[in-house]
Simulated scan of single mutants.
Amino acid sequence: MWSEEVVAGRAAWRHVPSGVVFREVPGGVFRMGLSEAELEAVRVIERDGGVEDTVEPFFAAAGDAQPVREVRVEPFLIARHPLTVTQVQHWLPGYEDDYADADSGTARLGDDLGDLLEVLPFRLPSEAEWEYAARAGTTTLTFRGDGKPEEEWLIHDFADEERTAAAENAFGLAGMGSANEICADVWIPGFDGAPADARPRLGDGARTVRGGAADISPWQGCDEWLLLLSSTRYEHYDFTAVRPVAARPAR
């Protein structure tokens, strides 16, 4: 069922029936949340004229991603990129997607999300796992640094292997922040009382979503780049992509 391979020059595990490629993310400790240094980096972008609309709503919602805290994460496998239309159709043969450009495009699931999660043999990442994977050892706005993200960074179709590889971070993950990706955690504003490990915060209600900058591309000048930030989080309310997590196969 699993094949150990080298994909784009990096070790990977492929779930053979579905074709989903997973990367192994090493365990470690990181500082999760929107730091004061990151807030200042956004202010610098604003002062330098890099803001097209207003970032006041972002600053007003900063508490939703605070306080910053240390979180310990155990090693895990996470999909190299969000599930594509073809990959979702492996589990849901009748799935159709009017929002994806092609079968290799990121699947955006709406009413069929629950159906997929019922049959998917993998789990959703916790928020801590997602942010740890997105940061890939960095503490900056994105894994590329504190500069203003560009729309050219977005990737939502994975047919072009060269472009997909170029979009990977240090953990070999492509498109982190491009699509809105659902996490296992229920939406709770802020991290007060959150666990010091990577367990999800469970409960009733909408789940938490990360990313989403490609879902409103081409950008209309409403500072959509803020959705690419590693710490940006919000409540799920509509369509979402899925980037599953798996247990490491036994060799």
Rank of each mutant, 00 (worst) to 15 (best):
F22Q: 11
P121W: 14
V7G: 07
P125L: 07
D111E: 14
E24I: 05
E96S: 14
Y99I: 14
R23P: 12
V6M: 11
T138Y: 09
V20A: 01
L83F: 02
R123F: 07
V68C: 02
Y99V: 12
P125Q: 09
R144F: 03
S126C: 00
E46T: 08
A12N: 07
L116T: 05
G137E: 00
E118Q: 15
V55Q: 10
A65I: 05
T54H: 12
V88E: 01
D64F: 03
G50I: 07
E74G: 12
T142G: 06
Y132L: 05
S35G: 03
G9F: 13
P75W: 10
P82H: 06
G63R: 11
V29G: 07
V71Q: 10
T84N: 11
V29Q: 14
P125Y: 12
G110F: 01
Y95K: 12
D101H: 12
H15W: 13
W130K: 03
E96F: 08
A134C: 15
T106H: 05
D101W: 13
G105N: 07
L120I: 10
E5A: 10
Q89F: 07
W130L: 12
Q89T: 10
A12R: 10
V68T: 11
T54K: 04
A107N: 06
R31Y: 12
E131D: 02
D64P: 06
P75E: 12
D115K: 12
A62H: 00
L116S: 01
R31F: 04
A65T: 00
E5V: 15
A60T: 13
R144E: 15
V73I: 04
V88H: 00
F22H: 04
L113Y: 00
D98R: 15
L83D: 03
V42L: 15
V6F: 07
D98H: 11
G28S: 08
T84Q: 08
L117A: 02
P57Y: 02
F58L: 05
V55F: 00
A12K: 04
H90I: 08
E24A: 04
A61S: 06
L39D: 09
F30M: 07
D111Y: 13
G110T: 13
A41N: 05
R43I: 15
E70N: 13
V42R: 04
P121I: 13
E5C: 03
W91Q: 03
Y132W: 05
R69C: 00
E118R: 14
T106S: 02
H15C: 01
A37R: 15
G50N: 05
A37H: 10
G9P: 09
D64I: 00
G50D: 13
